[in-house]
Computed example of a mutant assay.
Amino acid sequence: MTAYNILAISGNDIFSGGGLYADLNTYTINGLRGFVAVTCLTAVTNQGFEVFATNDQVFKNQLNSLKTVDFSGIKLGLLPNLAVATLALDFVKKNQDIPVVLDPVLVCKENHDIEVSVLRDELLKFFPYVTIITPNLTEAELLTEKSIKTLDDLKEAAKILHNLGAKTVVVKGGERLDSDQALDVFYDGEKFEVLSYPLLKENNVGAGCTFASAIASQLVLGAPVFQAVKAAKNFVYQAILHSDQYGVNQHYAED
């Protein structure tokens, strides 16, 4: 059996629900060998939920350490500042022949806003070099500079993001469009697909990270892009459905 190496360029979630923890768990469940380059640490302080970017040189050294690893895919998560984002982009440009999934994190569930104005422009530079981007509704609003209130708005946002250079887009609508359904819109420049699952409001921290890393995993395993998105959507739904308050998936833990 082929052992595939897959990289997560993502941050540390102090609560271990999202970020690199979600990525590595997802890779393992999919039978892949996961690696990680850590972009930041997080902590809850008197200032609230804070993000501490990895030192530029340390992050560069991490990526240089991995340059001889034969990766079959990459998932990009939280890039906390311009310096880290620039180094990550350089790395991606050197690996354009493999699937790359960009989760353009501009806001966190903990309501911490990452530096938006500069980082938004930097994230747009990734679009031509990645296979698919997976913004949530708020991130799609920030990237497109458009308000999203309806399913048609969600489709229009996906189209704008494609026109900005993204080859394929899935915009996660979440609960803001439908109180009972988690609606996502997929767009590849030719057709729209709406994916809908019953909305699960409990234990969903890390859902976006897991979704993106599940897509990356499926792409590495050879799935076409839309099939990878569909499989990832189901994967996240099942993971939340069977999880406890700490995000531990009881279904997979018992297998």
Rank of each mutant, 00 (worst) to 15 (best):
I133E: 10
I215Q: 00
E145F: 07
N12H: 15
L200R: 06
F15R: 14
P104H: 06
A83S: 15
K94P: 01
G208Q: 07
G208T: 02
A140V: 00
P104I: 06
S10I: 13
A3N: 06
T168A: 15
E193L: 09
R33E: 08
K167A: 15
Q96S: 12
L151D: 05
R120A: 10
E115I: 09
I133K: 12
E50H: 10
R33H: 15
I240C: 10
A216T: 03
D103A: 02
G206C: 03
V36E: 12
L32Q: 07
T26Y: 02
V118D: 15
V170F: 09
G77L: 13
Y27D: 00
F126H: 11
L241P: 02
T39D: 08
Q218R: 09
K125C: 12
T150Q: 09
L219F: 03
E139W: 04
T138N: 12
Y21E: 08
G208E: 02
L124R: 10
V44I: 13
A85F: 00
S65E: 07
Q245D: 12
V170S: 03
C209A: 08
K146V: 03
A216I: 00
C209K: 00
D70W: 00
D180I: 06
Q62G: 01
L87R: 09
Q62P: 03
P224G: 09
S243A: 15
S16T: 08
F91E: 02
G165I: 05
V100P: 04
F192T: 13
S217E: 04
G206I: 00
K230I: 10
V248R: 14
D113S: 14
A53W: 05
T45P: 03
A85D: 04
H251V: 00
D13T: 07
V84M: 04
I114C: 13
L63K: 06
Q57F: 12
K93E: 10
E175P: 02
A232F: 00
F15A: 12
H242P: 02
T168K: 11
R120I: 09
L161P: 03
L76S: 05
V100C: 15
S65M: 10
